[in-house]
Design a binder for these strands. Structure first.
Length: 303
DNA sequence: CACGCCTCCTGTGCGC
DNA sequence: TGCGCACAGGAGGCGT
């Protein structure tokens, strides 16, 4: 819908202040997923080490498991696993008698989580030795991430995943259903976007970006049908454009190969406080909505 | 049930 | 220069 932003002009602008770190949202997690998938599918975990981070659940059960898939739901990485068949019906942890239950590993990068291979440092929180001799290393300075091994498709241990809304880039994200939910909810539209139940994978950065594009004030309540349709389209646009650029990096987010996403220079709202709105030139304003730093254009985005 | 507020966690950057 | 402190935020939990 928009032309390619003028990179030349961007050079004249100061870099957006990184008051967040480029927290992993759907585009960042999808970029990580695309890099992990070819490395992990078919590999078996032969050794597990963790630092006993409190947000880890049953990570030790990964030992002996083989990655069948590397998938994503919203901001969660969800991998199907296959355990060793238990000849003779030997009982394994988490197994029903006589067989094995299929497991999944659910991983969330929190604010500062990232994966890499064969490189540890002071912020290493988990290491998975693989049967090809390499080691998948999970790094997470602020320890907001999660790794949980759960029975396949039993996500009750991860409430947000269990109640997660539709994937925004698939046909499951129905514009009329979304509009109906936005009309009924009493919460601010930004809070509704962040809680993951109307739509999966939108966090603070892309909530501000989508609301700016749809010209909706972040603190609006009971958004009408026309604006809801514009927001539905804006969400899909900002997420898919960021995926094309492999996500937004300010500092902490990086891909498995250590590279940065290229979307940071294309943000219109997040981190743009006090700078001119790219549509109307009015100074962008920073406030707090849903307990989160929020930047919007006071002229384009009326309450 | 739905909404909103508080907590977790730690590196960073600002002010004095 | 050095110190201390406020700040950032996704999800979980709890109170209203």
């Amino acid at each position: 819908m928009r032309g390619v932003p003028d990179r030349g002009l961007r050079w004249l602008r100061p870099r957006p202040r990184a008051y967040g770190d480029g927290v992993p949202e759907l585009p960042e997690v999808e970029s990580v997923r695309r890099q992990l998938e070819p490395e992990l599918v078919g590999r078996t975990v032969v050794a597990v080490w963790t630092d006993r981070m409190r947000r880890f659940l049953d990570v030790d059960l990964l030992a002996g498991q083989r990655f069948l898939t590397v998938g994503r739901r919203g901001k969660f990485l969800v991998c199907d696993l296959e355990g060793p068949q238990a000849p003779g019906g030997g009982r394994r942890p988490g197994a029903t008698s006589g067989g094995h239950v299929a497991l999944q590993v659910v991983m969330h990068l929190g604010m500062t989580g990232s994966f890499r291979f064969d490189r540890t440092d002071a912020w290493t929180r988990a290491r998975l030795g693989l049967d090809d001799g390499r080691e998948l290393v999970y790094r997470d300075p602020r320890r907001f991430g999660r790794i949980a091994v759960v029975p396949a498709h039993d996500h009750s241990a991860i409430p947000t995943l269990a109640a997660l809304g539709p994937e925004p880039l698939t046909g499951d994200f129905d514009v009329e259903v979304f509009a109906g939910q936005l009309r009924r909810t009493e919460a601010t539209v930004k809070a509704a976007l962040l809680n993951q139940r109307l739509v999966a994978g939108v966090g603070n950065i892309y909530a501000d970006e989508a609301l700016w594009r749809a010209r909706i004030h972040p603190a609006s309540r009971r958004v009408g049908a026309a604006r809801a349709r514009a927001l539905h389209a804006a969400i899909r646009d900002v997420l898919s454009e960021s995926i094309e650029r492999e996500g937004t990096t300010f500092r902490d987010y990086q891909m498995v190969n250590g590279e940065s996403g290229r979307n940071a220079d294309f943000l219109d709202a997040y981190g743009q406080a006090d700078r001119p709105c790219r549509r109307c030139g009015t100074a962008m304003r920073r406030t707090v909505v849903a307990q989160r730093g929020t930047t919007y254009c006071p002229r384009c985005q009326r309450a």
